[in-house]
């Protein structure tokens, strides 16, 4: 395994492990959130990562994106080491955290996009072109001028997905992208994601 590490995969982990020290009453104990995860995902693949609540999905995503340092094991995302190369990686990854907005709650959606375009150093022309594409594909036109705090959960999630795609990342990670719609609509959401993948 170690010999093949860093050979062009978009995500590659080897024995990735994360433990947390938690307080349990008066005692402290170790909680293993992710244990020995070894996975290899090629560019162009779409992979679903499922598990029960507390199974370690978000912890894995945080290690892939440089937010958390692994307790053990190795990880390469887009060929970069997430923690030391965090700022370079940020240019190549787009993440949607379903529970946490990346948009500015008091600003219209359009203005949030504009700030994110500045953050990712898009030129005005790139910003206009890219925003236009995303508005069309994700059908955001009806609420571009509405402050984020006034959006429905479904509308906000679409705006969040657009925000994550704005800088044309090589890798898109969606953490709980299906919150908001009723259970029956989740399948439809998954189909939408597949369509988006084909388009971008």
């Amino acid at each position: 395994m170690s010999g093949a590490f860093n050979s062009g995969a978009i995500i590659e982990t080897d024995g990735l492990t994360r433990e947390f020290r938690i307080r349990d009453g008066k005692r402290r104990r170790l909680l293993t959130a992710v244990e020995g995860l070894t996975v290899r995902i090629e560019p162009g693949e779409a992979v679903g990562y499922i598990g029960a609540n507390g199974a370690g999905k978000s912890t894995t995503i945080k290690m892939l994106t440089g937010i958390l340092v692994p307790t053990a094991g190795r990880v390469l995302t887009c060929g970069l080491r997430p923690v030391p190369d965090q700022r370079r990686l940020a240019r190549q990854v787009g993440v949607v955290f379903g529970q946490r907005s990346q948009l500015w709650w008091d600003l219209p959606v359009r203005e949030s996009f504009s700030i994110l375009a500045a953050i990712h150093s898009l030129t005005r022309a790139e910003e206009t072109g890219r925003t236009g594409e995303l508005v069309e594909q994700l059908e955001l036109g009806g609420f571009l001028s509405v402050p984020v705090r006034q959006l429905s959960l479904g509308q906000r999630m679409r705006a969040e997905v657009a925000a994550a795609l704005l800088h044309s990342p090589r890798l898109v990670i969606l953490d709980e992208p299906t919150i908001g719609p009723a259970y029956g609509q989740i399948q439809e959401r998954v189909r939408e994601i597949s369509e988006l993948k084909a388009q971008f």
Binding site: K62, T65, G66, I67, Q86, R87, R88, A90, R91, V93, G94, V95, F97, Q99, R100, S101, Q102, I119, H120, S121
Partner: peptide, 11 residues
């Protein structure tokens, strides 16, 4: 948990 959003930006 909103500090995480700052990790996803290249500054």
């Amino acid at each position: 948990g909103t500090l995480d959003a700052f990790y996803l930006r290249p500054q």
